[in-house]
């Protein structure tokens, strides 16, 4: 059973998650079909920057985040920005978009100059996230949990972060049981995606280097 307090806690996170999305004018540019390689690079960079800004705004609303040490706040965001962005992009990809949008978006990313060896695990991740059919509360909580990961580099007070992450894991576990009563492994599958995200994060620096070179 999800208690009233947990429901309120979850609503705060969900509301912040829904309110902080990439601005429509930035997102719209992605669907304009004519672009040179250089314009594509700049646009994807603009998207990435916007995504980080939106992520920070969302994170400020995660209960307790602003009470953490300021440098720890930065360490958490730095350590999770790539993973949280992959998670958000995966959700965009698995959401219902108007006809043809998914293809335009996919083609833009495939033509971005990122090497194929990084592209495959990224699109595989998008696919496995899509197959989970998460409800929006699960998406919001999973993103918040990714950000509030205590063992990121340079986090000094890991226990304080753990104290904020635990109640979110608890609500997510209950939500999974409620929404997916016939899939007892669902919560474990979600956590498994977080491990996959860590691998993507690990390759991200190499991916950026290859992208810049291309």
């Amino acid at each position: 059973v999800i208690t009233k307090d947990q429901q309120a806690f979850m609503n705060v996170i969900l509301d912040a998650y829904n309110r902080h999305q990439i601005p429509p004018d930035v997102a719209k540019k992605l669907l304009q079909e004519q672009y040179s390689a250089e314009e594509n690079f700049l646009l994807l960079t603009e998207m990435a920057t916007s995504q980080v800004q939106v992520l920070v705004e969302f994170t400020k609303h995660i209960p307790g985040f602003l009470s953490l040490d300021h440098e720890d706040q930065i360490a958490l965001l730095k350590g999770s920005a790539v993973e949280a962005s992959f998670l958000r992009s995966a959700q965009v990809f698995s959401s219902k978009m108007p006809n043809g949008h998914t293809e335009v978006l996919e083609e833009r990313i495939r033509k971005s100059g990122i090497s194929e060896e990084f592209m495959t695990p990224m699109f595989n991740f998008y696919k496995t996230i899509g197959e989970l059919h998460m409800v929006e509360e699960e998406q919001a909580l999973l993103t918040a949990i990714t950000i509030m990961t205590p063992d990121r580099p340079y986090v000094k007070d890991q226990q304080a972060v753990e104290r904020l992450q635990e109640p979110m894991l608890d609500v997510l576990r209950k939500l999974c049981a409620l929404h997916h009563p016939h899939e007892p492994q669902y919560f474990a599958r979600l956590l498994g995606r977080l491990t996959e995200l860590r691998t993507l994060n690990h390759y991200h620096a190499e991916m950026l280097t290859s992208w810049r070179m291309n």
Binding site: L42, T45, E46, T49, V52, Q53, V56, E57, K60, H70, Q73, I74, L77, K78, A81
Partner: peptide, 21 residues
């Protein structure tokens, strides 16, 4: 331009500012 800013710069700026105001 944003493309010249590092991740940490973007995070610090966003943490300091308040886009909602």
């Amino acid at each position: 331009p944003a493309s010249n800013l590092g991740l940490e710069d973007i995070i610090r700026k966003a943490l300091m500012g308040n886009l909602e105001e």
